[in-house]
C-alpha cells in the first residue's frame, strides 16, 4: 500500500512537471492555433536565466523569478515578431518547422551562454519532505502543484472573463472575423507568445530544483509536455492538467508494475489507446484543424 502511494506521489511530481509545460503549449494553441515546438527550449532558457540571476547576480528568489519571467517573455515577443510574423504563407506545417529550427537555435544559444554543464537551483523552501502513510512527497512538488493550479485558474479567468482573453481566443477561432470586429489580431498573437514563453520560463524555474537544468533539458520536457497537452485535448487548460498528471502517473505505475525500462513505452501505449478511443483528447475543446 505504501509503495502504491509512493508510485502515485512520484507520478504527481512528474505529472505536475509535464502539466505545467503542457499548459504553455495549450495556452498558445488556444490563442494562435499554433504548436510551438521550441517551448521546451523556453523552459530551458527560463531555468538557466534563473541560475544566472540567483547565482552571479545574487538576486533574492522573488525578484530573480520575476526578472527571469520578464526576460523570457521579451525573448518570446522577439521570436514572434522576427520569426513567426515574417512568414508569408503561415501554414501550420511551415510554422512547425520554424519552431523546430528555433528550438535548435535556442539550444545552441543556451549551450554558448551557459556551457554544457548541468546546474541546480535550490528549492523554494527547505521543509523536510511531507510524510503521508510512509510515502514521501517533496515540498517542491507541492510548490509546483500549487503554482500549476494557480496558473490554470488565472488563465481560465483570463480567457473567460477578461476582454483581452476573449479577444485572444477569438483570434484563434477566426483571425479574419476577429479583425473585422475590431480586434488587433497581430497584437493578440504577439501577446499570446509573450504570455506562453513567460509561462515556459516560469515552469523552468519551478521544476529545476527537482530536475536540475542544462542546455539540453528542453527537448525531452517539450516532448512530454506536448504529449500531455495532446492527451488532455489541445487548447483545453484543464485538459492539459489532466493530461499531465495522467502521463506522470501512468509512467510511475509503468515503473512499479511493468518494468522501468519500458515505462515510457507503457505510458505511450496507453496514450495511443486513449487517442484511438477519443480522437480529440480527453477534453476536446476546439476543433483541431488538419494540415
Amino acid at each position: 500500500m505504501q509503495e502504491i502511494l509512493q508510485y502515485f506521489f512520484s507520478g504527481i511530481t512528474n505529472g505536475a512537471i509535464y502539466a505545467v509545460i503542457a499548459i504553455g503549449f495549450s495556452m498558445l494553441y488556444n490563442s494562435t492555433d499554433l504548436i510551438n515546438f521550441a517551448h521546451g527550449e523556453f523552459v530551458m532558457l527560463g531555468a538557466l536565466t534563473m541560475v544566472t540571476f540567483s547565482g552571479p547576480f545574487h538576486l533574492p528568489l522573488l525578484p530573480a523569478f520575476i526578472a527571469t519571467v520578464c526576460c523570457i517573455s521579451i525573448a518570446g515577443l522577439l521570436f514572434e515578431r522576427l520569426a513567426i510574423r515574417t512568414v508569408r504563407f503561415p501554414e501550420p506545417i511551415v510554422l512547425i518547422i520554424i519552431t523546430v529550427g528555433a528550438s535548435i537555435f535556442l539550444r545552441g544559444i543556451g549551450m554558448l551562454a551557459w556551457g554544457k554543464d548541468a546546474y541546480s537551483i535550490p528549492p523554494f523552501s527547505t521543509h523536510p519532505p511531507l510524510d503521508i502513510a510512509g510515502a514521501k512527497l517533496l515540498a517542491q512538488s507541492l510548490w509546483i502543484l500549487l503554482i500549476v493550479l494557480l496558473m490554470v485558474a488565472c488563465l481560465h479567468f483570463f480567457f473567460k472573463k477578461t476582454l483581452t482573453g476573449k479577444a485572444m481566443e477569438a483570434c484563434a477561432i477566426d483571425k479574419r472575423a476577429a479583425w473585422i470586429v475590431g480586434i488587433p489580431s497581430k497584437l493578440m498573437v504577439m501577446l499570446a507568445f509573450g504570455l506562453s514563453t513567460g509561462l515556459g520560463a516560469l515552469s523552468g524555474v519551478i521544476i529545476s530544483p527537482i530536475t536540475m537544468c542544462s542546455y539540453d533539458m528542453g527537448t525531452m520536457l517539450g516532448l512530454k509536455g506536448f504529449c500531455a497537452a495532446m492527451l488532455g485535448g489541445l487548447g483545453s487548460l484543464w485538459g492539459s492538467l489532466i493530461g499531465g498528471f495522467l502521463l506522470g502517473i501512468l509512467e510511475a505505475l509503468g515503473v512499479g508494475f511493468v518494468s522501468s525500462g519500458l515505462k515510457d513505452a507503457t505510458a505511450f501505449f496507453l496514450l495511443l489507446f486513449i487517442l484511438y478511443a477519443r480522437p480529440g483528447g480527453i477534453i476536446s475543446a476546439l476543433n483541431v484543424k488538419r494540415f
Partner: peptide
Amino acid sequence: AETFGDKDTDMTAQITKIRQ
C-alpha cells in the same frame, strides 16, 4: 535491477521498487 531515462525528472518510483 531497474533503469531510468537519462533525462528523467524523478526516480522515486524506481527506488521504491528497489527498496521493497
